[in-house]
Computed example of a mutant assay.
Amino acid sequence: MKKLTLHNLDDLAIGSAILGSGGGGDSTYSYMMTRYEMEKRSSLNLISYSDLKPNDLIIPIGFMGAPTVEIEKMITGREFIKIFEIIEKTLDKKITAIMPFEIGGSNAFTPIITGLQMGLPVLDADMMGRAFPQTQMSSAHLHGISPCPGFINDCLDNTVVIHAKQTETLEKIGRHVTIAVGSSSAFAFYPINGTIAKQCTVPKSISRAINIGKTHRLAKENGEDPLNSILESCKGVLIGYGTITDIDREISKGFLQGSIKIQNHKDKFELVFQNEYLIAKSNGKIVATTPDILMLLEQETGTPITSEWLQYGLKVNLIALPAPDIWTSPEGLALVGPRQFGYEADYKPIQKSRSKNTILSINHESK
């Protein structure tokens, strides 16, 4: 067990944004809410697998919906208090710990806010190792763990309990409920015990996000380019750079979907997203895909840019970091690979084409 303090929050904000691959929601508001709660309580217990007992009840939590909605329909920070009351009544058991469903963006802060409010420790793990647009794209689903009962709540404490036979069905029902309450909702899926948590979650994801953020911060403090520091420490690649010249973006079926075009004096790039950045093209050819972590960094400051904050004229660097190992297996790729999103391209790890001094160039078949 270790303490999470105010000192860690800035690093977590940057690191979780990078791991979010454009999704997970902008963390500005949740970061401020976390600071407010932590200033009252000074620290939070961040626990590891070794702190878990076999029969502990761990609840993964997050927010579902289109990230742009949360800019105007801000969270109250207390959505999970009602959910937890219903969970404990439904399961007839006290919650021992909570954890982020995904480590990306705002969802990295969600369990920290709730943990501070309710005096619960947070498990240093998640179910993705990054962010993905759908809840069945989780390590627990990959291990055959049931996500039910699932719980959804909105800012007015309208709560739905879902008992679904299949994980994909839970996602569909949950998405429809989320659209009905304004395209943003709090959810708690995959209630698990301590034994299962050790088997089916991605370990140390909060610590990894903090370490990435620390690398970014130290580079800036030392007058260095955070881009190079992130690529070096995470074994990533620079796909391309340039100015955003076109944005095609809409909220559809409960997701923020679309694409952007980036251009420099020589090359043209396209980045396709569904909440998260999924496909990167260079001069019409697919050069990087999910599950590798695609991310945009603002050129001057190195600030990560999530999909809801894309703006015409921004000068950006487009990077890719290696996918968490769990997603590069055949079973993992069947869940989160490019073909799952309708692209006739096979996943090729960016690590195989990593070159420290050159821009990535992989010959994929375009959609």
Score class of each variant (00 low, 15 high):
158 N>Y: 07
140 A>K: 05
157 D>M: 03
132 F>P: 10
145 I>F: 08
144 G>S: 09
145 I>E: 03
158 N>K: 12
144 G>T: 03
148 C>E: 06
161 V>P: 12
159 T>F: 06
164 A>N: 14
130 R>G: 09
163 H>K: 14
167 T>H: 05
150 G>T: 02
165 K>V: 09
132 F>L: 15
153 N>F: 07
129 G>P: 03
154 D>W: 04
155 C>L: 08
162 I>S: 04
148 C>N: 13
135 T>D: 01
161 V>R: 05
159 T>N: 08
144 G>V: 04
166 Q>S: 12
133 P>W: 00
170 L>N: 06
130 R>K: 14
135 T>E: 08
138 S>D: 09
136 Q>H: 08
165 K>H: 13
139 S>W: 00
170 L>G: 09
169 T>V: 11
133 P>V: 01
152 I>G: 09
164 A>F: 06
148 C>H: 06
160 V>C: 07
152 I>H: 10
152 I>M: 13
136 Q>G: 02
164 A>G: 14
133 P>Q: 05
154 D>L: 00
147 P>S: 15
150 G>V: 00
153 N>L: 11
166 Q>A: 14
148 C>K: 03
137 M>A: 06
162 I>K: 04
148 C>M: 09
135 T>A: 01
163 H>I: 06
167 T>S: 12
155 C>T: 14
155 C>W: 08
146 S>K: 14
161 V>A: 08
148 C>P: 02
133 P>R: 00
165 K>I: 13
166 Q>R: 13
160 V>F: 10
163 H>R: 04
165 K>E: 07
153 N>Y: 07
142 L>T: 08
134 Q>G: 02
133 P>M: 01
143 H>K: 14
153 N>M: 13
169 T>Q: 13
168 E>N: 13
147 P>H: 02
158 N>A: 07
149 P>Q: 12
132 F>A: 12
